[in-house]
Design a protein around this nucleic acid. Structure first.
Lengths: 190, 190
DNA sequence: CGCGCGATTGAGTAATTTCAAATCTAGTGG
DNA sequence: CCACTAGATTTGAAATTACTCAATCGCGCG
């Protein structure tokens, strides 16, 4: 399945559009082929775009003063990634987005998104829905963070994305779960 | 300032509307006067509305099997609250929203929101912006949760809402910060 | 006055961290 | 095919931190 089809299927799940509208939407996106390790957004950058993942896996993360990494999101196919704080506010990026594996993504600029939303109300509806979905997912994660111990959070993550298990290094999983890699390791080697 | 004015000022910060449009929007909201302790959404309920706070303070929280409470949000004036997972998906509420103090709120049903968004594109834009803002705030909180210790998180919260200090019991603050009340107490009585 | 809720304090326990070292593994070049 | 290296993972031990449980304190209100 090519990029246009994947994007179309993703949007069509939420709103009904004509083929012409789907084509007009896809026109605004720029396909990018990325190598493992390449970065899309780096701390300190100006951010004017977000990215829709077609293939591969990205991570978005924050690095603190002691060089400790905290992963906000593993972006798998059909997920979106950016530094939304920077994208919406115009401030410089505080988080970094890069490729865990080779990846195919579609880039959409802020301006193009707004143009699409203005031209096609259903697209505005789609993006509203998408952010709602992200908000709910994030809230669920925060709750799990407060409520559950690491082991349960680890199982939740693997249940949601079984492919992560042998796609990303365990230390990145640990950085997502908010524990040290040693603690994660000890969970399964008692 | 009355409810209509507060709502109008809140929306006008983001999108430009005519007085007639503001009036049409306010028409869809139902004002409610609530007493301290009253609940708007209770775990297990069907949820068909969200709430805009005019005055007072709400909390939205989750209670786990061991009756431990985790506070997702203190909803202060001009913030919105609901169980968005339930509201958007139609599933039953897993979180509860109730009043920490007497409160004045405006209720908006899902159907009325969608009707407004469909009738006035700028309103759709407003809600898209609002959810984006909520998403970014939540992401910031998750990061702070992973990165900072309780003391810093406590200071961040009080810096954002100084009035919380003598508005809500310390145990609720602890439930927001994700620590036991004893630990929070010891922070400032070493 | 005394009740009840919230806040504080103490002591022991459990979980996680850090630091250091050992082990494993995949990929590279000879 | 093998040796080597870099990165990733595992393991150990000590130190830290937060938790639980229990008891006490403080204060506002009937």
């Amino acid at each position: 399945m090519n990029g246009a089809d994947i994007l179309q299927a993703h949007i069509a799940k939420m709103v009904a559009l004509t083929p012409e509208q789907h084509a007009a939407i896809f026109d605004r996106f720029t396909p990018l082929s990325l190598k493992k390790g390449q970065s899309l957004i780096h701390e300190g950058d100006r951010v004017d775009s977000e990215y829709f993942v077609l293939e591969g896996c990205l991570k978005s993360y924050f690095v603190n003063d002691e060089a400790k990494m905290f992963i906000l999101q593993f972006a798998m196919p059909t997920w979106w990634a950016s530094d939304y704080q920077a994208l919406y506010s115009g401030q410089r990026a505080t988080i970094t987005v890069d490729c865990i594996t080779n990846a195919e993504v579609l880039k959409l600029s802020n301006a193009d998104r707004e143009a699409l939303c203005a031209a096609i109300p259903a697209v505005a509806h789609f993006f509203r829905w998408r952010t709602n979905r992200g908000y709910v997912a994030l809230q669920k994660r925060l709750l799990s963070f407060m409520n559950n111990d690491v082991k349960i959070r680890y199982e939740e993550l693997l249940q949601q994305y079984p492919e992560l298990y042998n796609l990303v290094p365990k230390q990145l999983i640990a950085a997502y779960l908010g524990v040290s890699r040693e603690t994660l390791s000890r969970l399964y080697h008692p």
